[in-house]
Design a protein around this nucleic acid. Structure first.
Length: 467
RNA sequence: GUCCCCAUCGUCUAGCCCGGUCCAGGACGUCGGCCUUUCACGCCGAUAACAGGGGUUCAAAUCCCCUUGGGGACGCCA
């Protein structure tokens, strides 16, 4: 059987980390088996659904690389088909009209609860054989006894006694289909045979199975992934720090890192921590999905991100750094930045960066000219002092005279000077570092000068001694 | 209240299905050390968990029951 899975977000906000992970697992499930991954937008709640939210979700999925097959299904466009199915159900005797008022139903629920039972509609209209009419809803004629069971891909066997479930409404009194009905019809029509979704739908599953059975349709395989918790162990929500996945892009995370980290949150493959997306596709198996909720740990996410930054192609990192630079310093800063120099620098930055945003201040000194360089005040006062100035002047002269300007020649110059003056290396290296970068932190001093180039290094030394 | 789900280091998890190889393994974090021209990286080491109680068994993290704790659901929302 070809696996067909889907992701079905309702467009009422951005795609947050929890939704992204559900989408990822569904995508992985399909891609692993060479099946199809479909996308359906559940926009039947006209009040809350927005085009902006749809775009935001699509953008986030694109960023993560979760491509879907075929056209996007919009649930709101399918009301006619939903109603057609409801009519079939009524005709077949699996559903019936009900004219109980909301107040009456509330009273029934109240009563049931008072008696210590699960609140539910009592089925008054089940056998009334009512026809369509104003203010009437259509309810499913659910089995009264027996149980509805299924084997959850992540939780294992789950069974619910049918008496726990009430005759749920399929069509509202205003003629619109309800969620549970719409989901079943859409999944069936789309050919979806594997449904992987959030934990909060476990209770809906037996109800939906009842609809499949009433229609005599094949029941898909279901799986419910546990939710993601905040550091306080509370469910991640907008109020509780659930950020849009795109916020992580803004914080300088790489999509492959996000995918890697998200996958490890609830899924495992032995002791392995680092997975490329291709590797995950190859190894993914719902058997290894965890069944307890997990806490989102930004520290570990950072570590994963640091790993993928080390692996990333410098050309791509250069583009990203320039994007961030443009955002922070304005477009002209990025346009004027010497890309070649940045490319030479990036391999030295990769081992020391946890995010792209961190790489921006580390790059900046290399992207401006000597006269634009900003010196960190503390660093300058501490290291560019009366002792350092003559040293820097001497170094400047030696570098000027050095026609090679290589790692080896620079090392020879510095080591020679250290020996000659009987200095500790850092008493030379730190002033030099501050002089050429404006900061106490940079890659190796030789690499730093090499990336800057001879002219720029000399210009900065000249400027530094006058500080 | 009723039903459903969950429970291994601070965190993510392996192990649990098919009991012994687990006085519980890996990773993040934290702490210490090494490396070192700064910041990092890297390397080495340490820290720390089977929620509790009963069974079953020669033997239980693993199987069964109960308790506790957490979460979810109970809508003419999705």
């Amino acid at each position: 059987m070809t696996i067909v899975s889907r992701f079905a977000p309702s467009p009422t906000g951005f795609l947050h980390i929890g939704g992204a992970r559900t989408a990822l697992f569904s995508w992985l499930l399909a891609r692993h088996s060479g099946g199809k991954f479909l996308l359906r937008i559940e926009d039947t709640d006209r009040e809350r659904s927005t085009q902006e939210a749809i775009d935001a979700i699509l953008d986030a999925m694109k960023w993560l690389g979760l491509d879907h097959d075929g056209e996007i299904t919009y649930q709101s466009e399918r009301a006619e088909r939903h109603n057609e199915v409801i009519d079939q159900l009524v005709e077949a005797g699996h559903a019936y009209y009900c004219d109980c008022t909301k107040e009456q139903v509330d009273a029934m629920r109240e009563k049931a609860r008072a008696e210590g039972r699960k609140p539910k509609y009592d089925g008054s209209c089940r056998e009334k054989n009512l026809g369509p009419g104003p203010d009437r809803v259509v309810r499913l004629k659910a089995p009264i006894d027996g149980a509805t069971a299924y084997d959850d891909m992540v939780k294992g066997p789950i069974a619910v006694n049918n008496e726990e479930m009430d005759d749920m409404i399929l069509r509202r009194s205003d003629g619109t289909p309800t969620y549970n009905l719409a989901v079943v019809v859409d999944d069936h029509d789309m050919g979806v045979n594997h449904v992987l979704r959030g934990d909060d739908h476990v209770n809906n599953t037996p109800r939906q199975i009842l609809i499949y059975k009433a229609m005599n349709w094949d029941v898909p395989v279901f799986g419910h992934v546990p939710m993601i918790l905040g550091p306080d162990k509370k469910k991640l929500s907008k109020r509780h720090g659930a950020l849009s996945v795109m916020e992580y892009e803004k914080m300088g995370y790489l999509p492959e890192a996000a995918v890697n980290y998200l996958a490890r949150l609830g899924w495992s493959h032995g002791d392995q921590e680092i997975f490329s997306t291709e590797e995950m596709v190859k190894l993914f198996d719902t058997k290894n999905l965890g069944n307890s909720p997990s806490v989102f740990d930004l520290k570990k996410f950072e570590w994963v991100n640091a790993h993928w930054i080390k692996e990333a192609d410098p050309e791509r990192l250069a583009d990203l750094i320039l994007d961030f630079l443009a955002r922070e310093d304005g477009p002209e800063a990025a346009e004027n930045a010497p890309r070649t120099k940045l490319l030479a620098l990036i391999p030295h930055l990769q081992p020391r960066a946890k995010s792209i945003v961190e790489m921006v201040p580390q790059s900046r000194p290399f992207l401006v000219t000597a006269d634009q360089l900003e010196y960190d005040e503390k660093a300058a006062t501490k290291f560019i002092n009366d002792e350092a100035r003559p040293l820097l002047e001497e170094i400047r002269a030696k570098i000027e005279a050095d026609s090679d300007f290589t790692h080896d020649s620079l090392e020879a110059i510095c080591k020679g000077l250290v020996e000659e003056k009987e200095l500790k290396f850092k008493n030379l290296a730190q002033p030099l570092r501050v002089a050429v970068t404006g900061s106490t932190q940079s890659p190796s001093i030789y690499d730093t000068m090499l990336v800057l180039g001879k002219d720029e290094t000399l210009a900065r030394l000249e400027r530094a001694v006058k500080l």
